[in-house]
Design a protein around this nucleic acid. Structure first.
Lengths: 344, 344
DNA sequence: ATGAAAGCGCTAACAA
DNA sequence: TTGTTAGCGCTTTCAT
């Protein structure tokens, strides 16, 4: 078999061979168009023999629909995102869409160029994971009639849909758990401070502490980044035992795992005897027995389902207003945080 | 600001406003075309005011190049792949390409439908990660003139490029390490047996053992899947101490981590005192101190660079023959495997 | 360096 | 139900 490259087979070729018109071929490949059984059979046969497949790009030039969804994503090293990506892609694939990936430059703020490029591809919709959009860009998407859904982020901007878990309630639940566990000195390791998720988690945590007359005892910033987080953890815990927190809430699991490693392997502390650690997300490694991380579960499946739902609704009917969906987040109790006596 | 959707701005609109011809606009947006400074300025201005951007889909209809690379991927829960995907996408983005993702149905073999769909999008090239292709499909891609590169898999089929690490040598190096560590009973937990990576790693391991007059003492299959692997580990290690392996090579890190957890937390064994564990890939969690997994590093960066290199070469010149690249894999020594005395 | 015109592969009126 | 025709938004000869 030589590597000879056959000339491109078009619908015209199929039409000729089948002895029908170009439109007949087009109709055969358009779901729900009217073709008689007889012509359908003729087209089917010719198409099969010629190994013809419609060119979706040419099609979308006319229909105005590319069946491509642009996805902007930044932190694939946070294992919440690969999982979300897999589910998102699968859900969209089932409905005949596909995902075009755009990696956001790690340097925040530069998402704008990516989004512009996405628009160039005539995508039918955009999912932005874990980053925010400038209002300028938002406007552009709206002008282009391309719906945008923020995944795992909420933005108070007209016309921008968003799906997230209830970060505020989640943060508050962590505070209550830690309080009930009889802890005294509460640490917090923040994610990147520009992120709404980070802010909401922290606000909920503080509010929960405050309701019990407590406040944060120590605070560091980990920027959603493991190395930065390790430094933050050393800063917070490599001190005299009496001034060291006995509980710490870390803005996500990815960082919390780094914190646990520093605590146990660098500082020789026991988790949870010396320090309770709680994360956020419930990524798969949080469930690995070596960590058994108590955390707040973000239901990726439901978040993806909502994201897809909003997006497809808006594609089908552009006049549907933007929706912001906040999904309940559940505490997942494992071994990294001391429990109140009664619960045990 | 109302959500009014502006009518689509085309190159004709820009031409009119700039007082030039359609071709002038096209040339302005075509790198390396001849436009005078004066017209360029006029077009630039009009385009800016109208917020015009070329429609890449319409362009590719003519040029025959979509600047889209199709990626078929299956196991995003193996953290080797998110990392690879991120690097791949970044590398391609730098060269003006973008990745269209196709999740392969978990049931192997059905990749064919995905690849066909990819072809429909007129992609310029295809990367297939972690799965094999039928010869039928391979032929189709060739006929369509679309180069295919297998990532992390090698297939002995004419016209199919592939990039992988040296799985055979890697497996052999593991055997030698374990032998040097003074182990006596060698276990192996296999990945999915249809995978060439799995077969090569096992073959190398066996060969290494054989060279020292040893053989595999116990063997189970984990299918690249954590739950299956946990069962396999119980089967292998929940036996009388005298008949239990004192070293085990697991076909990848994702599985090796599950094995370590079963060993330590279910069976109460110490790693590496009771059992040495070695994995393959060197995914980020392998370096987390809680595992400190000795493993074989697959250099994702180099593998991606080679993949992109082959792909772009073949896109640029379709007559370039398929290339198979095998990249050296390095042993990474951590704490999960006992070391020979001299090395310590 | 520029414009006119042809056409990429397809769908969507419109007539028949 | 079927075929004819006119484009979708752009690039690319070919003249000028």
């Amino acid at each position: 078999m030589t590597g000879k490259r056959s000339p491109k087979v078009t619908a015209v070729d199929v039409a000729e061979r089948a002895g029908v018109s170009l439109s007949a071929v087009s109709r055969y490949f358009t779901p729900g168009a009217s073709v008689s059984k007889k012509t359908a059979a003729k087209v089917a046969r010719a198409a099969e023999e010629l190994r013809y497949r419609p060119n979706v790009l040419a099609r979308s030039l006319i229909t105005g629909r590319s069946r491509i969804i642009g996805l902007v994503v930044a932190y694939l090293e946070n294992y919440f995102y690969p999982e979300a990506l897999e589910r998102l892609s699968n859900a969209l694939q089932e409905r005949g869409y596909h995902v075009l990936v755009f990696m956001a430059s790690q340097t925040a703020g530069n998402v704008d160029r990516e989004v512009q490029e996405i628009l160039d591809y005539q995508v039918d919709g955009i999912v932005v994971a874990s980053v925010a959009l400038s209002s300028e860009l938002t406007l552009r998407c709206q002008a282009a009639g391309v719906p945008v859904v923020l995944f795992n982020r909420i933005q108070d901007m007209e016309g921008i849909s968003g799906v997230s878990s209830d970060n505020h309630a989640g943060g508050r639940a962590v505070a209550e758990l830690l309080l009930a566990g009889g802890h005294q000195r509460f640490g917090y390791i923040a994610g990147w401070e520009g992120a709404s998720t980070q802010r909401d988690r922290e606000a909920g945590y503080c509010e929960g502490l405050k309701a019990a007359g407590q406040t944060i005892w120590a605070r560091e910033v980990g920027d959603f980044h493991q190395e930065t987080t390790r430094r933050a953890a050393r800063e917070m815990f490599d001190v005299a035992p009496c001034s060291r927190p006995d509980a710490v809430f870390v803005a996500n699991d990815h960082m919390a795992i780094a914190v646990m490693d520093v605590l146990r392997f660098e500082l020789g502390l026991d988790v949870p005897r010396d320090v309770s650690v709680v994360g956020y997300d419930d990524v798969p490694p949080a469930a690995w027995p070596a960590y058994a991380l108590t955390t707040v579960r973000q239901p990726a499946d439901r978040m993806v389902a909502e994201t897809v739902g909003i997006l497809l609704d808006q594609i089908a009917n552009p006049r549907i207003p933007a929706r912001r969906v906040v999904i309940e987040a559940q505490l997942v109790l494992r071994r990294s945080a001391r429990l109140p006596k009664e619960v045990v």
